[in-house]
Every structure is written in structure tokens, then in C-alpha cells.
Computed example of a mutant assay.
Amino acid sequence: MSEQTLILVKPDGVKRGLVGEILRRIEAKGYRIERMRMLTATDELLAKHYHEHTEKPFYTGMTDYMKSGPIVAAVIEGTRVIEGVRSLSGATEPTAAAPGTIRGDLGRDWGTGEIENLIHSSDGEESAALEISVWFD
């Protein structure tokens, strides 16, 4: 059974010219890009996306990073795509992410104090549906 997930190529991935490589890895795994757009995130959009984090101390730094440049948002489709894309992405902390993953091969700590980790992917069916509606209303 096919499902959908949201991925965001974050501003550091766009700035470094890695959009094609990230999408290539997702497509090479056999998943399909269903929809895609490039945009610069707004406070309102990020408040909807990160609604569970708005009161946390890291929220402002995280949203400043997410507004620092263009983002590529894409709806990815395929069987077990949520699990598969999260596996392809690797651990959240790029320095600790396994080689062979997007973050493990392409990410690193740049000393900014923020985790710049190239890609976001939904963590479950419920969050995927909500996040897709936020970015593709």
C-alpha cells in the first residue's frame, strides 16, 4: 500500500546545491516525487509546522535557520515511504549520522550552534498528513 511523506530540503541543503543529490537518492530508492515547490518559509508557516515546539527554548533559533534561505518542499510517495525516507536521511545530528545516509555523507557541524542537517522528513502517517497540508494547502 502506497503512502505519502513530506520532505523539506532545508536552507543549508539548497545553499550548498544539494537539492538534486538529495532528490536523486530518494528517487534511486524507488520513491516518486508527487509534488514539489521552492519557497522561503514564513513565521506563520513554521509555527504551523513546528506547533509542538513553539514554547521550547530552541524554537527561535530553529525558525531563524529555517527562514535563512529557500526551502524545497516535496511530497514523496511509495510503499513504506515514511520509514524509508527517514532511514535514507540518517540521524538528526549529522556528525553522528551513519555513512551512506544523506546526513552522514553530506552533513556536518558547521559551528553555528544550530543543527543544520539538510533534510526534514515526516515521522509518521499523522504528522505526514498534517505537514503536507501545511506546506501544500
Rank of each mutant, 00 (worst) to 15 (best):
S122M: 14
L88S: 10
L130W: 10
G20N: 15
T63V: 15
R108M: 06
L23M: 13
Y59A: 08
I132K: 04
I26F: 04
S133W: 05
I76C: 03
L39G: 06
A41I: 01
L45P: 00
T60K: 14
Y59W: 10
I33D: 05
T79I: 12
I22N: 08
D137V: 00
Y65Q: 11
E131K: 03
M62P: 09
L39S: 04
S2Q: 15
T54Q: 15
V72L: 07
G90C: 10
K67W: 06
Y31S: 03
E55F: 05
M36F: 10
A97Y: 12
D109E: 12
R32F: 00
K29C: 02
A47P: 01
S133N: 07
A28H: 13
G111S: 05
P94C: 03
Y65R: 04
K15W: 06
A47Q: 13
R35V: 01
T101F: 02
I7S: 01
S2P: 12
P11E: 12
T101P: 07
L45Q: 07
P57G: 14
T112V: 02
E125A: 15
E77Q: 14
M36R: 04
E116T: 07
L6N: 06
I7Q: 06
W135H: 11
G84A: 10
E27Y: 14
E126G: 11
R37H: 02
S89L: 06
H120Q: 09
E3P: 03
G20R: 07
E126K: 13
